[in-house]
Simulated assay, not measured.
Amino acid sequence: VVFFIINLPFYMLAWLRLGPQFTAKSLISVTALSGLTLILPDQISFAQLSTPMAAITFGALTGVGLLVIFRHNGSLGGLGVVALIVQDKTGFRAGYVQLCADAVIFCVALFLFPLPIVAWSLLGAVVLNIIIAINHRRDRYIAT
């Protein structure tokens, strides 16, 4: 619910800069993710999952999922909208924009959480953003 609400201001930015179709697809994606986060914890459990494997798997699956959403002209709102606008305006890849934003967020997190938790989360974010940075370019396939 919080994720959905936090993204509301980004829809206006997306509407103005990226268009109504992008905004609608982003709203659908955010709504679906918000709903799934309520359902999935009751449907999936792991008897054993190492922290490094969890971080890498999270990063890879989330990176591929975001790549699919981006290629279909949508986003999960928030910084993803900003990253795509920066990429379109400057050519600086969206994955690198997100990685820079994540670096700031993780620096702040160091003051709030223990170092090992921040480090494993950072590993997942790095994997995610490298997948996006390497694979997402507007001149490649974009579905309508």
Rank of each mutant, 00 (worst) to 15 (best):
A24W: 12
I131H: 04
G80I: 05
D102S: 08
L13G: 08
S26G: 12
F92E: 00
G59C: 02
I134Y: 11
I131C: 10
R17C: 12
V68T: 14
T37H: 07
S34K: 01
Q98D: 06
K25V: 07
L8N: 01
V127A: 07
A143C: 12
Y11S: 13
F58C: 05
N73W: 08
Q87F: 09
F70I: 07
A24P: 05
K89E: 10
A32Y: 02
P20Y: 05
I44N: 05
Y11P: 02
F10R: 02
A109F: 05
Y96N: 14
D42N: 10
L112W: 05
P52A: 10
F113G: 00
F46Y: 10
I5N: 01
A103Y: 01
Q21P: 06
V64N: 02
V118P: 10
G124I: 04
G59P: 04
L49W: 07
A125N: 07
F92D: 08
N129G: 12
F70L: 09
M12P: 00
A60F: 07
L13C: 11
P41Q: 10
R140K: 09
G65S: 15
I85R: 00
R17G: 14
L79K: 08
F58N: 11
S75T: 15
A133D: 12
K25M: 13
I69P: 04
F3T: 14
D88H: 13
I56W: 02
L115R: 03
M53A: 14
T90S: 12
A54Q: 15
R137W: 02
T51Q: 10
R17S: 14
R17M: 15
V126F: 13
A14W: 01
T37N: 04
L112F: 13
